[in-house]
Nucleic acid binder design. Structure first.
Length: 521
RNA sequence: GCGCCUCUAGCUCAAUGGCAGAGCAACGGACUCUUAAUCCGCAGGUUCUGGGUUCGAAUCCCAGGGGGCGCACCA
């Protein structure tokens, strides 16, 4: 199957553009040395802010040094107009043979080159704010092209694999990731302002736990034991509540060995938070306040449009039980007292593939997921799940067979999962053992008995509310992204394959090797 | 994993069984106020790979690879 791939090792990646020919080899232009630092005195945005209304054809007497990438270059004989892009924006560079040192070198610059330029801030005759370049220095050559200056880069594969090119060429991409960064930062501040302490717990687990998911397995050589990449943060954080950290949170990467989709990446970022003395009602308050706060600060409004549909994030969000919502959307009044035969009929009527081992709780969850969840837009808190499918949540205080658990559905997707936490070690042992049986019966996502966690519970976990929020999905929501890969800088992809016949440039003939490693020595 | 779609120059895209092209970028040149500057010139290809059908394949068929979407699983 992998025919012809055996010899592929390192070197040229398939599809990678060839390195650009060295410019102007005929001119014998001396290659300027690249400095080790550059003294920038202003960003392009600062220059704009300082001179909002400069009249056409006038100068300011103010000399600045700006730095960034050359975005456009319009040569016009003895003068030239460049456009410099930096992380704050763009600004025109006005160069001329009469006042710009090494003007010939300036017009030989290539789009994408990094340069620093020094000169007076002026407005050209047509009124464009510019730096009238007196001196400039090359800071890095762009040996590869960024592509079409108008269309940018649209090939998704190229955007994900070469994110740096996407970030440079596509402004929307840059904005999305800046928004994500601010979102994470604001989330930290929001939690800290409410007395939550941020911690970091292990990524390598000796037992997988905290969520129903297949883990990645890795191996520690010295200990000669398998370790699991965490599928959740939950069990360690609740241990910390046992230890007296009454409000604790972690924003961390978790790993699930499952399928990829526009909404699933094998590694993703969760916020998990645990609050002693709180129940799941208070966690609902926390979730809706956090999301509304982020929308307000980042977007200036809680009234969003996502995928063309309106979405109002202002609290309070609707709170409804799973059974109420099933009744609304499947037209069937069902609960745990409904006879099993009746539930199977409802399931069959909605094309739910039923397995014989399922109890009523699992049946109800499947019916919900098939009939109701896809129809929800939200935001809505879906409350009170069957205990059968919730091994870490505490029994409902008044409804037998249910637990105090909710999932907020926002823009048609589950955004989080939260409980009044199960804190009875005996009960926890029973649910672990039930999970363990399911696992032995072949359910690879079922949990195992975690004796260390049970020991922690035996020291006493106070009443605690806990929540886990999928931060990637939250970033999608706030940025309007339809695919999780648009909010993850380097999403998981199959490895790019080298072309065997070009795969070993370091061993190849010099005239082939040199363009690939022009500076290798 | 299964199904559907897709892959052509560095980038964005044409060519629907009959000579592989355009714009931008790059390269050479002209131009002293441009705004995706304009103009002239030059170059650029394993049409993802391998087979097959055909007088002739980017195009049709088979297999493989990458990507996208859907299903399944999950958040």
């Amino acid at each position: 199957m992998a025919a012809g791939r055996a010899g592929a090792c390192g070197g040229v990646l398939a599809g990678a553009p060839p390195v650009r020919k060295h410019r102007a080899p005929m001119t014998e232009r001396p290659r300027p040395a690249i400095p080790y630092r550059y003294e920038r005195t202003a960003t392009t945005a600062e220059v704009r802010a300082a001179h909002p209304d400069l009249a056409a054809g006038t100068g300011t007497g103010e000399v600045v040094s700006v730095a960034g990438r050359l975005v456009l270059l319009r040569e016009q004989g003895r003068i030239a107009f460049g456009v410099l892009g930096d992380s704050s924006g763009r600004l025109q560079l006005f160069a001329g043979a009469g006042w710009t040192a090494d003007f010939d070198g300036f017009v030989q610059l290539v789009l994408g080159d990094w340069i620093g330029a020094t000169g007076e801030v002026v407005a050209t005759r047509t009124g464009e704010l510019s730096v009238k370049v007196e001196r400039w220095v090359l800071l890095a050559e762009a040996r590869r092209s960024f592509g079409d200056k108008w269309h940018g880069i649209s090939d998704p594969d190229l955007r994900y694999r070469q994110r740096y090119a996407d970030l440079w060429a596509n402004e929307g991409s840059r904005e999305t990731f800046l928004l994500r960064s601010r979102m994470i930062s604001l989330t930290r501040r929001f939690m800290e302002d409410r007395g939550f302490v941020e911690v970091e717990t292990p990524v390598l687990h000796t037992l997988p736990g905290g969520a129903s998911a297949r883990p990645f397995v890795t191996h520690h050589n010295t200990l000669d034991m398998d370790l699991y990449l965490r599928v959740a943060l939950e069990l360690h954080l609740k241990r910390l509540v046992v230890g007296g950290i009454e409000r604790v949170f972690e924003i961390g990467r978790v790993f699930r060995n499952e399928g990829l989709s526009p909404r699933h990446n094998p590694e993703f970022t969760m916020l998990e938070a645990y609050q002693a003395y709180a129940d799941y009602h208070e966690m609902m308050d926390l979730v809706e306040q956090l999301v509304a706060h982020l929308a307000t600060v980042l977007l200036g409004t809680t009234s969003l449009t996502y995928g063309g549909r309106p979405l109002e994030l202002a609290p309070p969000w609707r709170r409804a039980t799973m059974f109420e919502l099933i009744a609304e959307h499947a037209g069937a009044e069902v609960d745990l007292d409904t006879p099993l035969d009746e539930l199977r009929k409802v399931a069959a009527a909605h094309d739910v593939a039923v397995e014989g081992s399922w109890g009523p709780g699992k049946l109800l969850l499947e019916i919900y997921e098939k009939t109701t969840e896809p129809a929800l837009w939200g935001p809505v808190f879906v409350m009170d799940y069957p205990k059968e499918v919730s091994p870490l949540a505490r029994d409902h205080r008044s409804k037998r067979g249910l637990v105090e658990r909710f999932e907020p559905v926002v823009a048609g997707r589950e955004l989080a999962n939260a409980f009044s936490e199960l804190n009875d070690p005996d009960e926890q042992r029973r649910t672990f053992e039930s999970q363990s049986k399911a696992r032995a019966a072949g359910d690879e996502e079922a949990m195992v008995v975690d004796d260390d966690y049970l020991r922690a519970l035996e020291y006493g976990l106070p009443p605690t509310g806990g929540v886990g929020i999928g931060m990637d999905r939250l970033a999608m929501l706030l940025s309007g992204a339809e695919a999780i890969r648009d909010v993850i800088l380097f999403p998981t992809l199959r490895p790019e394959q080298a072309r065997p016949e070009q795969a070993r440039p370091e061993q190849a003939q010099p005239e082939q090797a040199q363009p690939e490693h022009p500076r290798a020595e």
